[in-house]
């Protein structure tokens, strides 16, 4: 078992709608999809972000694309218009998700 960054096996992009941030996360290789499915749960992301994401996190699977869409409410400090954050649009929320540490079993990579 090894601990790696999600970034090592996934890629994606973040976007914003008001104070909601969405991050799509795709497996870099088809076989990594199952690792992401197991390791990147809404609960783990909620713990990862702490009070940075105030609302609920929902995960939508799109297996035909080998990825997931994570929708995080009240995640941008009020959203583009009101946020005091440097990254008010959450452009770096994608890489912040990729920073999640995940566990992979021997032989999975």
């Amino acid at each position: 078992m090894a601990e790696i960054y999600l970034n090592d096996i996934a890629h994606g992009r973040s976007g914003d709608k008001g104070d909601t941030s969405n991050v799509c996360v795709y497996a870099r290789k088809p076989e990594y999809y199952k690792i992401i499915e197991r390791e990147v749960t809404p609960e783990k992301l909620k713990e990862h972000f702490g009070d940075m994401v105030q609302g609920e996190i929902v995960r939508y699977a799109v297996p035909t694309l080998g990825g997931f869409n994570f929708v995080m409410k009240h995640a941008l400090g009020g959203g583009a218009t009101m946020s005091l954050r440097l990254d008010s649009l959450g452009k770096s929320m994608g890489s912040a998700v990729m920073r999640l540490k995940i566990h992979v079993n021997d032989g999975e990579l």
Binding site: H11, D16, K17, T20, C24, L65, V71
Partner: peptide, 16 residues
Amino acid sequence: EQSCKEQFLYEVLDPA
């Protein structure tokens, strides 16, 4: 494939 995927769900909420 990957460049299109990254844009495909950009600012989408529920894909369905």
